[in-house]
Design a protein around this nucleic acid. Structure first.
Lengths: 220, 220
DNA sequence: GAGTAAGGCTACGGATGAGTAGGTAATCGG
DNA sequence: CCGATTACCTACTCATCCGTAGCCTTACTC
């Protein structure tokens, strides 16, 4: 238990429910990220949140519910960041570029969120996967829409239009694991990571080995 | 406890240690894959293996050791499959194609192995990640070597040679998550999955949206 | 400034599951 | 055929940790 300097037990200051809920989810994301779902104990989360355990149960329910709340909040934030980064009316490669930059920008600034979101929720399976699947599906649709827009503008080829969704899935997957890889190689900048993936998926190795690379437009 | 039809307790038949160890690891892979590291209990593994729990401890040590043994065995098998699938002396795109096909072929026939290897070991972190990292690094080096060979043959461009390793990392990552995606969309064939990734990383979207696709050579 | 609702706490029950102690039966070298 | 070795088992101990019962205490409300 926490004791003040005079040895008296410390009671947390009274705060409105909304604020506490935020603090609790913050703490939970941090602990889940560091220890994983199972090794994270409700006791530790409550300690990090600066509050006692029964409050978590009162506000956010059981451990599963708490975890689901984490997933949901972080997924929403991530998607908003990516959607917000894309400017309509641009050519598709530029849209893709901005989307990737927003994505890696978010992951770079919220590594803990990403760790919980991707690694943990995938590994747990069950009810958590659904939340993640929903987000991934939205991301895939987004990418597919960008590609299809190109198609309708310029008369897309048969192969691409038929395979739009799975290709988008592959790209989203590539982004996910490159982000994972990045967790373990944190020295790179978000833009440089985004550029790597952009070159890989837009130009392809076939072009890259002959030094034909993709470059962002002037205005960045 | 297991009882025979006459109500007598059943004692497992005596078998040499090597055989039992194999059975135990087989059972462990299956249970870890289905339930995840933490929810898998040693009791259930012993039951699936058709043997009692102390035998596991006697032969393979604690739960962590058992899991590490699973990772190690499956990783070795996977890498051997991929390396064995690549024929030297072929052009780089064909080598890549064969490597991808072997990879997805293995994952398709050993979904349980892949689930343990990738999803579980990544999520657990700690000592298990190392084993996986080592394997991934070997895969990355392999891919990088294929790309670099192209470079020295045809005078590779500055961008590609500088970025060889990270690009290979991105490709390996893309393969990993496409395999993960595949776990949840099992209706596709291994070749079709491999072809998707091949097109994505070799041709790039830039080509695909204009219907320029990559096709395997005549002899498959 | 009493009443009350909402924020906060300590301390425990109960389940689960890792790991072990200590003993029995089958095989093998002599 | 007889130790000795090795395979194998049942039945526990002990720690961890989720979730809750029951009880204070602070701050608005009239």
């Amino acid at each position: 238990m926490s004791l003040a300097e005079d040895g008296q037990p410390v009671r947390a200051k009274r705060l409105p429910r909304a604020v506490r809920e935020r603090q609790i989810v913050d703490a939970a994301v941090s602990v889940f990220s560091r220890l994983g779902y199972h090794d994270a104990s409700m006791d530790e989360i409550s300690e990090v949140a600066g509050i006692s355990k029964p409050m978590i149960y009162a506000y956010l329910g059981a451990k599963e519910d708490l975890f689901a709340a984490c997933i949901h909040r972080e997924a929403t934030l991530l998607l908003e960041a990516v959607v917000g980064g894309i400017k309509v009316g641009q050519p598709p490669d530029v849209q893709l570029w901005h989307g990737l930059r927003s994505f890696f920008g978010f992951v770079g600034e919220h590594r803990e969120s990403w760790r919980v979101l991707h690694r943990q929720s995938i590994a747990q399976g069950g009810p958590f996967t659904e939340e993640l699947m929903a987000m991934r599906q939205r991301a895939i649709s987004l990418v597919a829409a960008v590609l299809m827009r190109t198609g309708s503008d310029e008369g897309v080829g048969e192969a691409a239009s038929v395979a739009g969704e799975p290709l988008a899935a592959a790209l989203v997957g590539a982004g996910e694991s490159l982000a994972d890889w990045w967790l373990d190689h944190p020295e790179e900048s978000p833009s440089s990571i985004a550029a790597r993936l952009m070159n890989l998926v837009w130009m392809g190795f076939g072009n890259l080995v002959e030094d034909r690379v993709w470059k962002p437009p002037r205005d960045e």
